[in-house]
């Protein structure tokens, strides 16, 4: 860890000012000299590892009063970016009307981490790629643009099979983001010129030729809230992992269905643990919409979800696994008693 200054931002403007002043045009935001601190469960970790080297920390926890609401309304749900994962997961109405959100949070990390970590920080969580997290490996296009990718032909069991490029196959590790992208969430961002909103699906950027650029956030911008319209009581988060708790997904899926009289009127499918960014499987949704459910349909949807997947030496199993996870989650969602 390197020395850094610490500043508490007592209002959003102060945070935005401090962060935007530190951004440099020629550097990705993750390498800006000032970084926001919320729960700190990723940032502090990466600073200890010398992966992130901010000179200044802007503590945005004082903003929690305005930014941590959990407000389920009749028409939509608003979640403040500084709400704690554990509080949202334990919320009655979230559990009842958005089980996919509650479970994606509950199945993530450990109880201690969920008590610290915020929703906004969670969606900004950075990849767990071992080569990214160990600075003794020179080859990491995400850390050192243009240096190559050690994971491509290395130990890549945990790596992505979707949204990959020949520059980076690092997996987006989070769970909650899959629920957000499946439910067409909107993300509210606060920056220099006030507040703007965009589809959550536009927040993360697939690696392409610039794996160092991970989001579309502009200098100084902070996520302030997430909005979800409608209710999704028929929704499931299914996560396959090596151990029973406190472990990242090898494959996960967020599924939400609107079924009326046996016909799927709307279907949402997102994939975790298998892609470089939160991943919406629209091809799978297209298979499902307007159809009567049966196991064959689930299988076709799952196949469609992974039609473009490409495995490497140690992670090819994720394609077959991911299909089974999607098919099973669809079955579970259909079987739910609402």
């Amino acid at each position: 860890m390197r020395p850094f200054s610490y500043q508490r931002a007592t209002d959003p403007d102060m945070a935005v000012q401090a962060l935007s002043a530190a951004a440099a045009a020629n550097k990705p935001l993750t390498q800006a000299s000032a970084q926001p601190l919320a729960g700190g469960t990723t940032l502090i970790d990466l600073m200890k590892l010398d992966v992130m080297r901010p000179a200044a920390i802007v503590d945005i926890n004082p903003l929690a009063q305005g930014w941590s609401e959990i407000s389920p309304g009749r028409e939509n749900l608003r979640l403040g970016a500084l709400a704690k994962m554990s509080d949202v997961a334990a919320h009655d109405e979230i559990q009842r009307n958005y089980p996919v959100i509650a479970n994606s949070l509950k199945l993530a990390a450990s109880a201690q981490l969920r008590n610290m970590a915020t929703l906004g920080g969670n969606v900004m969580q950075r990849t767990r790629c071992s080569y990214f997290r160990d600075v003794s490996y020179e080859n990491c296009n995400k850390r050192n643009p243009g240096s190559g990718c050690a994971a491509m032909d290395g130990i890549n069991r945990m790596h992505a099979v979707l949204g990959i490029s020949d520059q980076c196959i690092a997996t987006y590790p989070g769970d909650f983001a899959q629920a957000l992208i499946a439910l067409d969430a909107t993300v509210e961002v606060t920056g220099k010129s006030g507040t703007r909103s965009m589809p959550f699906a536009e927040l993360h950027k697939a690696p392409g030729n610039t794996p160092e650029i991970e989001t579309t956030l502009q200098p100084g911008e902070l996520i302030s809230a997430f909005l979800i319209s409608g209710r999704w009581p028929r929704s499931v988060y299914l996560k396959a992992r090596d151990r029973q708790s406190y472990e990242f997904a090898l494959s996960s899926t967020a599924v939400a269905l609107d079924v009326q009289d046996g016909t799927i009127r709307d279907a949402r499918v997102a994939l975790g643990g298998v892609a470089t960014v939160p991943w919406r499987a629209r091809e799978a949704e297209a298979q499902l919409k307007g159809q009567k459910f049966d196991d064959g349909l689930a299988q076709r949807a799952a196949d469609a979800a992974f039609a473009e997947a490409k495995g490497r030496q140690h992670n090819s199993f994720k394609i077959a696994l991911g299909k089974r996870v999607v098919a099973r989650a669809l079955q579970q969602a259909v079987m739910m008693e609402i």
Partner: peptide, 11 residues
Amino acid sequence: FADYLIPVNAD
């Protein structure tokens, strides 16, 4: 300890 897995209580 994040990548070298050992059991948690739930296991």
